[in-house]
Design a protein around this nucleic acid. Structure first.
Lengths: 224, 224
DNA sequence: ACAAAAGTGTTGACTTTACACCCATGG
DNA sequence: CCATGGGTGTAAAGTCAACACTTTTGT
């Protein structure tokens, strides 16, 4: 079969990743600077056009690796952005994903053929992005806020485990709320997302704190 | 600018709607029978290929109207399905949506140029669908289960309001759980999704029951 | 008056919140 | 041996689940 209707021609798919980290209590998102048109010299999220012979997640991983050097990062589907004129070149529908990574465990490629200056940018300093990437970051960050309460998405931010005071700072940074130290511990444990490693580690104080890790599998809980 | 790389050619977007109803305590999904290749004579979800000059929601509404006659139905983005060979014709990425409608408030077109037999099919009788539509129904129905607890998505199932016993049956059908009548009422009211209309209506018993409706806007609630 | 189903109230069990208190360590 | 921050305990307030009771209607 062949497709002839011109209304079906000239369409493509963008795969786009909002990759977040929390660095000393500040939420940051990974941006790159574009070297080419369209939006030359603008900041943008990591991503690009999908090849017609690769799956969505394969294309996304290829783009992330090409433009930042990052590999092996779990990604979650978040949203789709498809306004007719969101790309000036041709009709592109963007599929957006969410990822989280430990800023210290990754060596960013500073420059590639198509991009330069891969940079962790604090969320409140993000401005003037290419395409509709500002919108995409917004919806992805909202998704992150929800997901940290019901999934192990932060596991990749703490590949070697974490202490309670440490993870509390992270939750506070992402949600923008302060918690009571003692009740936070109980709440997080009750969510059934983490487990005790049996080890301890010094974080901020002098007394070594228990080391926890996120569980591999998280079960859904029922609201009713 | 022109796109020349063959890896970017021959791609398209499907927009697909899983439209649910609850009919006498049975959850049903709207299926149509395909008249043309590919998947001729197979049952399928409502949807089709997006034109390159229309927004996603416009294309979806056009497809729904063309193939079923249904108009003015709110739709929520659910998922994206993009395996390379999910369509035998060309590379198609499917964007899937969720909708709910009152079976009594709609006149289905039984036959169109491309389809025939638009039919409400009970969920447990669905089998042997075109494309990856079985998978799409699964993920969409899961989304529905979650959404009825935190949104007004069922509003369209009860355009004229509903009584407590009536909506309880609906929740029980969708979630597959029975509830205590008295606690269900309190729970649903506490979710802050519905409001009293001041009217009453006879449902099953003799005593007229209070008539409620879903609120127009629902605010997010915080888990912490 | 009675049956049937809607609507309200109550009690005990469990959770959550807001704290006080104890513990381990480095200086 | 004390300052600092981690870890545990507890009482009051709030929420939830199970069930009894009251109200409204048609026959």
């Amino acid at each position: 079969m062949e497709v002839t209707n011109p209304l079906y021609k000239g369409q493509g798919i963008h795969v786009i990743a909002s990759i977040f980290t929390v660095d000393h209590g500040v939420v940051k998102v990974l941006l790159i600077k574009r070297r080419n048109e369209p939006y030359k010299d603008k900041w943008a999220l990591v991503g690009g056009a999908l090849y017609n012979n690769e799956d969505l997640d394969a294309g996304l991983k290829r783009e992330i690796k090409e433009k930042t050097g990052i590999e092996n990062i779990p990604l979650t589907l978040v949203d789709v952005h498809g306004k007719v004129h969101r790309s000036p070149v041709m009709r592109m529908v963007a599929v957006s994903y969410l990822g989280v990574i430990d800023i210290n465990k990754v060596n960013l490629l500073k420059d590639t053929i198509k991009t330069s200056n891969a940079t962790w940018t604090p969320l409140d300093e993000v401005s003037d992005l290419a395409y509709d990437h500002a919108e995409i970051i917004d919806s992805t960050f909202e998704k992150l806020k929800h997901m940290i309460l019901s999934s192990n998405i932060l596991a990749n931010l703490f590949p070697d485990g974490f202490t309670m005071p440490e993870i509390q700072k992270t939750y506070e940074a992402i949600l923008g709320i302060k918690f009571d130290r003692r009740n936070f511990r109980r709440k997080l444990l009750s969510l059934d997302l983490i487990e005790d490693t049996g080890e301890t580690q010094v974080f901020d104080g002098r007394k070594p704190a228990k080391l926890y890790r996120f569980k591999d599998k998280i079960d859904d809980i029922n609201v009713f």
